[in-house]
Simulated assay, not measured.
Amino acid sequence: GLGYEDLYQEGCVWLCNAALTFDPARGSFASYARRVVQNGLIGYCRNVLSEYQRTVLLGDLEPAVLTALEVQNAISSHTKCETPLLLVAAESQYSGVTRKGINALALQVSGIPLTAVAVRMSVPPNHVSAWISRAIRKLRNNESFLSSLHEN
Protein backbone atom coordinates (compact mmCIF):
# COMPACT_ATOMS: atom_id res chain seq x y z
CA GLY A 1 0.00 0.00 0.00
CA LEU A 2 3.01 2.31 -0.02
CA GLY A 3 3.69 2.97 -3.70
CA TYR A 4 6.32 5.43 -4.88
CA GLU A 5 3.76 7.76 -6.46
CA ASP A 6 1.72 7.96 -3.25
CA LEU A 7 4.80 8.70 -1.17
CA TYR A 8 5.99 11.29 -3.69
CA GLN A 9 2.63 13.08 -3.68
CA GLU A 10 2.44 13.01 0.09
CA GLY A 11 5.99 14.40 0.27
CA CYS A 12 4.99 17.23 -2.08
CA VAL A 13 2.02 18.09 0.12
CA TRP A 14 4.28 18.27 3.16
CA LEU A 15 6.84 20.34 1.25
CA CYS A 16 4.08 22.84 0.42
CA ASN A 17 3.06 22.79 4.08
CA ALA A 18 6.66 23.55 5.04
CA ALA A 19 6.75 26.46 2.59
CA LEU A 20 3.55 27.89 4.07
CA THR A 21 4.66 27.61 7.69
CA PHE A 22 8.36 28.50 7.33
CA ASP A 23 9.71 31.34 9.49
CA PRO A 24 13.05 32.69 8.13
CA ALA A 25 13.98 33.98 11.57
CA ARG A 26 14.19 30.40 12.91
CA GLY A 27 16.78 28.94 10.50
CA SER A 28 17.27 27.62 6.99
CA PHE A 29 14.40 26.42 4.85
CA ALA A 30 16.23 23.24 3.81
CA SER A 31 16.59 21.88 7.35
CA TYR A 32 13.06 22.93 8.29
CA ALA A 33 11.52 21.43 5.14
CA ARG A 34 13.46 18.18 5.56
CA ARG A 35 12.09 17.77 9.09
CA VAL A 36 8.51 18.66 8.10
CA VAL A 37 8.51 16.30 5.09
CA GLN A 38 10.13 13.49 7.08
CA ASN A 39 7.63 13.78 9.95
CA GLY A 40 4.74 14.05 7.49
CA LEU A 41 5.81 10.92 5.61
CA ILE A 42 6.33 8.98 8.84
CA GLY A 43 2.81 9.92 9.95
CA TYR A 44 1.40 8.98 6.55
CA CYS A 45 3.14 5.59 6.62
CA ARG A 46 1.84 4.92 10.14
CA ASN A 47 -1.71 5.73 9.05
CA VAL A 48 -1.49 3.51 5.98
CA LEU A 49 -0.02 0.61 7.96
CA SER A 50 -2.58 1.06 10.72
CA GLU A 51 -5.38 0.87 8.15
CA TYR A 52 -3.76 -2.19 6.57
CA GLN A 53 -3.53 -3.94 9.95
CA ARG A 54 -7.21 -3.30 10.65
CA THR A 55 -8.20 -4.79 7.31
CA VAL A 56 -8.21 -8.56 7.09
CA LEU A 57 -8.73 -10.72 4.02
CA LEU A 58 -11.41 -13.21 4.94
CA GLY A 59 -9.50 -15.83 2.96
CA ASP A 60 -6.64 -15.50 5.45
CA LEU A 61 -8.83 -16.40 8.43
CA GLU A 62 -8.77 -19.90 9.80
CA PRO A 63 -11.45 -22.08 8.17
CA ALA A 64 -12.83 -22.98 11.60
CA VAL A 65 -13.52 -19.30 12.36
CA LEU A 66 -15.24 -18.79 9.01
CA THR A 67 -17.28 -21.96 9.40
CA ALA A 68 -18.27 -21.05 12.93
CA LEU A 69 -19.45 -17.64 11.78
CA GLU A 70 -21.31 -19.26 8.86
CA VAL A 71 -19.87 -16.92 6.27
CA GLN A 72 -17.55 -19.24 4.35
CA ASN A 73 -19.82 -19.65 1.34
CA ALA A 74 -21.62 -16.32 1.64
CA ILE A 75 -18.56 -14.08 1.24
CA SER A 76 -15.76 -14.23 -1.31
CA SER A 77 -12.33 -14.94 0.20
CA HIS A 78 -11.01 -11.85 -1.62
CA THR A 79 -13.44 -9.55 0.16
CA LYS A 80 -11.78 -7.19 2.60
CA CYS A 81 -13.43 -6.75 5.96
CA GLU A 82 -12.51 -4.77 9.00
CA THR A 83 -13.24 -7.82 11.13
CA PRO A 84 -11.42 -6.69 14.28
CA LEU A 85 -13.46 -3.47 14.28
CA LEU A 86 -16.68 -5.43 13.85
CA LEU A 87 -15.69 -7.67 16.74
CA VAL A 88 -14.90 -4.67 18.96
CA ALA A 89 -18.34 -3.24 18.15
CA ALA A 90 -19.97 -6.58 18.96
CA GLU A 91 -17.93 -6.89 22.16
CA SER A 92 -19.73 -3.91 23.69
CA GLN A 93 -23.02 -5.84 23.50
CA TYR A 94 -21.81 -8.66 25.76
CA SER A 95 -20.28 -9.19 29.17
CA GLY A 96 -18.40 -11.87 31.07
CA VAL A 97 -17.00 -14.90 29.29
CA THR A 98 -18.58 -13.96 25.96
CA ARG A 99 -16.91 -10.56 26.04
CA LYS A 100 -13.55 -12.18 26.84
CA GLY A 101 -14.09 -14.62 23.99
CA ILE A 102 -14.85 -11.87 21.48
CA ASN A 103 -11.74 -10.01 22.64
CA ALA A 104 -9.64 -13.16 22.21
CA LEU A 105 -11.23 -13.83 18.81
CA ALA A 106 -10.36 -10.29 17.66
CA LEU A 107 -6.75 -10.85 18.70
CA GLN A 108 -6.66 -14.19 16.93
CA VAL A 109 -8.21 -12.73 13.77
CA SER A 110 -5.49 -10.03 13.81
CA GLY A 111 -2.94 -12.82 13.44
CA ILE A 112 -1.94 -13.51 17.04
CA PRO A 113 -1.70 -17.27 17.76
CA LEU A 114 -3.97 -18.77 20.40
CA THR A 115 -1.08 -19.48 22.75
CA ALA A 116 0.08 -15.86 22.54
CA VAL A 117 -3.47 -14.69 23.24
CA ALA A 118 -3.52 -16.95 26.30
CA VAL A 119 -0.22 -15.51 27.54
CA ARG A 120 -1.50 -11.97 26.97
CA MET A 121 -4.65 -12.76 28.96
CA SER A 122 -2.70 -14.68 31.65
CA VAL A 123 -4.79 -17.84 31.37
CA PRO A 124 -4.28 -21.35 29.96
CA PRO A 125 -4.94 -21.78 26.21
CA ASN A 126 -7.88 -24.12 26.84
CA HIS A 127 -9.68 -21.28 28.69
CA VAL A 128 -9.21 -19.01 25.69
CA SER A 129 -10.51 -21.75 23.36
CA ALA A 130 -13.60 -22.18 25.52
CA TRP A 131 -14.21 -18.41 25.60
CA ILE A 132 -13.86 -18.18 21.82
CA SER A 133 -16.21 -21.12 21.35
CA ARG A 134 -18.84 -19.46 23.52
CA ALA A 135 -18.37 -16.11 21.76
CA ILE A 136 -18.76 -17.73 18.35
CA ARG A 137 -21.97 -19.41 19.49
CA LYS A 138 -23.35 -16.02 20.55
CA LEU A 139 -22.13 -14.22 17.41
CA ARG A 140 -23.66 -16.90 15.20
CA ASN A 141 -27.07 -15.84 16.56
CA ASN A 142 -26.35 -12.09 16.41
CA GLU A 143 -28.14 -10.91 13.27
CA SER A 144 -26.62 -7.41 13.29
CA PHE A 145 -23.10 -8.82 13.49
CA LEU A 146 -23.71 -11.31 10.68
CA SER A 147 -25.26 -8.66 8.47
CA SER A 148 -22.24 -6.39 9.10
CA LEU A 149 -19.97 -9.21 7.95
CA HIS A 150 -22.05 -9.73 4.82
CA GLU A 151 -22.02 -5.99 4.02
CA ASN A 152 -18.22 -5.92 4.07
Rank of each mutant, 00 (worst) to 15 (best):
G1N: 07
G1M: 04
L2K: 05
D6G: 10
Y8I: 07
Y8P: 00
C12P: 00
C12M: 11
C12G: 12
W14D: 07
W14Y: 15
W14S: 10
L15N: 04
L15T: 03
L15V: 01
L15M: 12
C16N: 14
C16M: 09
A19C: 10
F22A: 07
P24V: 07
P24T: 09
A25V: 13
R26Y: 07
S28E: 15
A33R: 11
R34E: 13
R34L: 12
R35P: 04
V36R: 13
V37G: 12
Q38I: 00
I42Y: 14
G43V: 08
Y44L: 11
R46K: 15
N47G: 15
V48D: 07
L49Y: 15
L49N: 15
S50G: 15
S50F: 14
E51G: 15
E51W: 12
Y52G: 08
Q53V: 14
R54P: 06
R54T: 13
T55F: 14
V56K: 11
V56D: 06
L58M: 14
L58N: 06
G59V: 13
G59M: 08
D60K: 13
P63D: 12
A64Q: 06
V65M: 06
L66W: 01
T67D: 07
Q72E: 13
N73H: 12
N73I: 04
N73S: 11
A74S: 09
S77M: 06
H78A: 06
H78S: 08
T79P: 00
T79C: 04
T79G: 00
K80M: 03
C81N: 01
T83R: 00
P84E: 01
L85F: 01
L85C: 01
L87A: 02
L87V: 05
L87E: 00
L87Y: 02
V88G: 00
A89S: 11
A89T: 11
A90S: 10
S92L: 05
S92H: 09
Q93M: 03
S95A: 10
G96H: 03
G96C: 04
G96I: 05
R99P: 03
N103H: 15
L107F: 08
Q108Y: 13
V109S: 03
S110F: 01
G111R: 06
G111D: 04
G111A: 07
P113Y: 05
L114D: 01
L114T: 13
A118Q: 06
V119N: 13
V119I: 14
R120D: 11
M121H: 11
S122I: 05
V123E: 10
P124D: 02
P125N: 01
V128S: 03
S129D: 01
S129I: 02
A130P: 02
W131L: 02
I132V: 11
I132H: 03
I132A: 03
S133Y: 10
S133P: 00
R134A: 10
A135K: 05
N141W: 03
N142A: 12
N142P: 01
E143K: 10
S144W: 01
S144A: 14
L146G: 07
S148G: 07
H150R: 13
E151V: 11
N152C: 15
